[in-house]
Design a protein around this nucleic acid. Structure first.
Lengths: 139, 139
DNA sequence: GTATCTGCAAAACATTTGCAATTCT
DNA sequence: AGAATTGCAAATGTTTTGCAGATAC
């Protein structure tokens, strides 16, 4: 996604495309590392030298409310963020702590017990050991 | 589960059955409300008048390590706990904030993209509006 | 020129840590 | 006594809030 496309994307979802907002969104989509607010702040602070963590938090809150970013609650002491809002799963490696995406659309599965509930968001998380770490352990 | 059965359950999983531990575990299984550490503390403080939050946290950590309790990370500012360790899903109502269980065994579904990953824990969360709240909105 | 956006400093809140007191065997 | 458990007080770390200054339209 180019800067122009990011701007359009933000505007389409009612978010005024200020520089911090564009940069934060760009970071989310180009690194796909599901960063924390702190990681985003550290990554961008050298470029946006007046950036504050408050703005990072404000911006992420705005993105979540505007449905262009979803919070990933896979670890209890940190919230991670993902600009891929399509239904998919997250896999967290217990060794290297990286968070990977995987294709899985929970909403595709008809969960009979939900009868009566009106679902809005679907979240699928798996924890375990990733391929790389499992391989390293064997070496 | 009776007190005697709770004791046995704790011992079987390597947890010495002290009074705070028994009471905290009893609270988890009898209320099934997926309480936070704070809610557990408030519920038990009047009975166990010397109870501290540290002990609640220590005990919950011990339960999680001993695999007799799982942390529920459905909300970013709170960790909830569930003594039902079988694979199942959680539904959080965005209106009344209650967390409900539903039958869903993610591990039953063969997730092809996981090839190479070694899964250990499966978590399924859905947010939306529960039956009761949806009904009230119509009244 | 008014509304929005940004960012500093302080506050809030859940959780963790260090360590001393207590309990259990 | 010795080991494990408990609990107070302080620290930690993330996120939120109040408000003032900057920016945009």
């Amino acid at each position: 996604m180019s800067i122009a496309e990011i701007k359009e994307h933000l505007i389409k979802h009612g978010v005024k495309p200020s520089l911090p907002r564009i940069k934060i969104f760009e970071y989310l989509i180009s690194y796909k590392s599901h960063p924390t607010a702190d990681e985003i702040y550290n990554a961008l602070a050298s470029e946006l030298i007046t950036l504050s963590k408050t703005t990072v938090y404000n911006t992420l809150d705005l993105f979540v409310k505007s449905k262009i970013t979803i919070p990933i609650l896979i670890e209890d002491n940190e919230t991670r963020f993902d600009a891929n809002t399509s239904n998919h799963g997250h896999f967290k490696c217990l060794r290297c702590n990286k968070v990977y995406d995987f294709d899985y659309d929970l909403s595709d599965h008809n969960i009979k017990e939900l009868a009566g509930f009106e679902p809005r968001e679907f979240h699928t998380y798996i924890k375990g050991v990733c391929k790389k770490c499992a391989q390293n352990a064997k070496d």
